[in-house]
Amino acid sequence: MVSNSNINNVKTKTIGEIFSKDPKIICRNVDVFYGEKQAIKDVSIDIASREIISFIGPSGCGKSTFLRCLNRMNDTIDTCKVKGSISLDKEDIYDEKIDVVTLRAKIGMVFQKPNPFPKSIYENVAYGPKIHGLSSSKEELDFIVENSLKDSGLWEEVKDRLQSPGTGLSGGQQQRLCIARAIAVSPEIILMDEPCSALDPIATAKIEELINQLGKNYSIVIVTHSMQQAARISQRTAYFHLGELIEVGETKKIFTMPKDKQTEAYISGRIG
């Protein structure tokens, strides 16, 4: 347990409101290194329950790296080292006691490029519940699959061809399938790493609508290149630059009256 007293007592250069009232994830003084190179410098931020927060910033600013720290996807890279503390429900996720498997079951992830398994649509969604043992019967599994597909808005489109391969869907459908796959394990938080960057505008609109829906039940952290997207879907926005968290705040405020000059420059399109 991270002691309560010093959570909100942290030195930071970040401008704006990094704290939330009902924090789900609490990050304090996080540094990330790839070998010698420091990719993230001293980032502190809270992520609240059932909020949609977007990370924006120019390419290579470390927003994706930071996102991948939140469910320890960086573990798969040998040279990657994380310092500082990240806690989920006040438990340090980098603690030795924490099993990364349980962690990732709680914090789902959707990737930049849709990556369905080369299996059927049904198998794609059922895979998570199966490996985690979330269903005790075929009916329960069917139910989870149906519900997840409904929640991701794909059910009507695929209900007649659940056994056809997931790779045969269109790009936007594939991405929604990946979202369905993520919510099938009943996570608390969903991380999305530029989920729309490989999609056309119509598919993007559908996914954005879906994210808005999902925001009622899950915390969603979304990394995006599109400021309009951040403005459309998120309640809070965090601006990263060169591995540092420059400014955090309500999306409206960030986009209308940014306090930091760098943020303003990025928002108004002068850097990026």
């Binding site: 498997v101 990732r104 789902g108 992830m109 990737f111 990556n115 369905p116 398994f117 080369p118 394990v185």
Partner: peptide
């Protein structure tokens, strides 16, 4: 790698990623 990421992102162990994702592919 994206398929591995998908597996790990859902909370699979290495064993599960290997037997369910990598070997079939």
């Amino acid at each position: 790698q994206s398929l591995r990421d998908a597996g790990y992102g859902l909370g699979s162990t290495k064993n599960e990623v290997i037997t369910n994702v990598i070997i079939p592919a």
